[in-house]
C-alpha cells in the first residue's frame, strides 16, 4: 500500500538527483544584509548533507528574511506573518521523509509567531528553525522588534524601547527545546556547522542567528557582534549541561556566546505519533472502505 504513493512520471536516471543549491532568483536584500550569510550557511549545510532538492522544504513567514526560500532550489512555502512553524509542522506530519527547514525573522518568530515557537519546541517536531534575528523590523522600515534592546530608538519607539527584550535562547531552553544554538551571520562556516548539526538532530533544532540589518539597526551591527561574540565550544561549555546552558543564555553584553548552548536526546513528535509509524502519512492508504464496521458504532 505504501507503493500507491510512488512518485509518478519521474524518469529513472543513473545520475544522482540535483542537490539543493541556489535558485534562479537573486536575493533582493539590501547590499551587506546579514541574511546573505544565512542563506549561504544553509546552502553549505544541505550540500554537506547531500540533500536532494526535492526532499527539502524551506518554510518561511513574512519579513525580509522570509524571502529566503525563493533563493534556494528546494521546495518552499512562503506563508503569512508568524505562521512558519505550524505550516512546517503540518508538512512534517504529512510527510516525515522530508527535511523541513523553518526560516524567518525575530518579529515573525518571537513577536506574532511566539506562541507557535514555544509549542513546536515542547513537541520536538523535527524541524530546523533558523531565525535571522536583527532586533528590528526591516521590511516595514524600522520599528522595534521583540528582541530590540532596552532604550533602542526606532520609528515606533522614538524615545527608546521600554520593554525588556525576549531572550530567544532562554525561551527555547524553558520550552523544552532539544537543540538550542546561536549563530552569527558574520561567521558563515560556524553557522553552517550549527545548521548542519541541527538538520540531523533528533527533533526541533533552533538556531537563532545574529543577522544584522545594515539599514535600520545602527546598534546591533556586524562590528557590534564581531567585538562581542565568542564560541561556546572554545570556552569549555558542555552542551549536555542544562544548568550551564542557562548560565550562558543569560550572558549578553560585553560578551555574547555563539555556538551550541544545549542538546539533548528525546523522541520526536513524529516518532511518538503512532499513526506515523506506518510510514509517511502522504503515502498511507486513505478512506473508509477497509473499515465498514465503523458504522456499527452508530446503531
Amino acid at each position: 500500500m505504501a507503493d500507491s504513493g510512488a512518485v509518478a512520471a519521474v524518469p529513472t536516471t543513473d545520475h544522482p538527483l540535483p542537490l539543493v543549491g541556489k535558485s534562479t532568483v537573486k536575493p533582493t536584500w539590501c547590499p551587506g544584509c546579514g541574511d546573505y550569510g544565512v542563506v549561504a550557511a544553509i546552502e553549505m549545510a544541505v550540500k554537506r548533507l547531500r540533500l536532494p532538492s526535492h526532499e527539502v522544504v524551506i518554510v518561511s513567514g513574512i519579513g525580509c528574511s522570509s524571502n529566503l526560500p525563493h533563493f534556494l532550489s528546494a521546495y518552499g512555502f512562503h506563508g503569512i506573518h508568524g505562521r512558519v512553524l505550524p505550516v512546517a509542522e503540518g508538512i512534517r506530519w504529512a510527510n516525515h521523509e522530508l527535511t523541513v527547514i523553518g526560516t524567518g525573522g525575530d518579529g515573525d518568530g518571537f513577536g506574532i509567531g511566539c506562541g507557535h515557537f514555544v509549542h513546536a519546541m515542547r513537541r520536538n517536531v523535527k524541524i530546523c528553525y533558523v531565525t535571522m534575528d536583527n532586533e528590528i523590523y526591516g521590511l516595514t522600515t524600522g520599528q522595534a522588534s521583540p528582541t530590540s534592546e532596552l532604550g533602542h530608538r526606532t520609528k515606533s519607539t522614538p524615545f527608546g524601547v521600554i520593554e525588556r527584550p525576549i531572550d530567544p535562547i532562554a525561551l527555547a531552553l524553558a520550552s523544552g527545546a532539544t537543540y538550542v544554538a546561536r549563530g552569527f551571520s558574520g561567521d558563515v562556516k560556524h553557522l553552517a556547522d550549527l545548521v548542519a548539526n541541527g538538520l540531523t538532530h533528533r527533533g526541533f533544532a533552533f538556531v537563532d542567528v545574529m543577522s544584522p540589518c545594515v539599514t535600520y539597526n545602527k546598534i546591533n551591527t556586524f562590528d557590534f557582534f564581531r567585538q562581542r561574540v565568542y564560541k561556546l565550544e572554545s570556552a569549555g561549555h558542555d552542551p549536555s549541561d542544562l544548568v550551564a546552558a542557562w548560565q550562558r543564555a543569560l550572558e549578553w553584553g560585553e560578551k555574547i556566546p555563539i555556538g551550541l548552548f544545549y542538546k539533548t536526546d528525546r523522541p520526536t513528535y513524529e516518532e511518538l505519533e503512532e499513526v506515523l509509524s506506518a510510514g509517511p502519512l502522504a503515502r498511507q492508504p486513505a478512506g473508509l472502505r477497509a473499515h465498514p464496521e465503523i458504522l456499527d458504532e452508530f446503531v
Partner: peptide, 14 residues
C-alpha cells in the same frame, strides 16, 4: 491560527 496553518502545511505536504 496554528490549526489552519498546520492543515495548510499538511495539504501542501500531500
Amino acid at each position: 491560527l496554528a490549526a489552519i496553518n498546520m492543515a495548510i502545511g499538511a495539504s501542501f505536504g500531500g
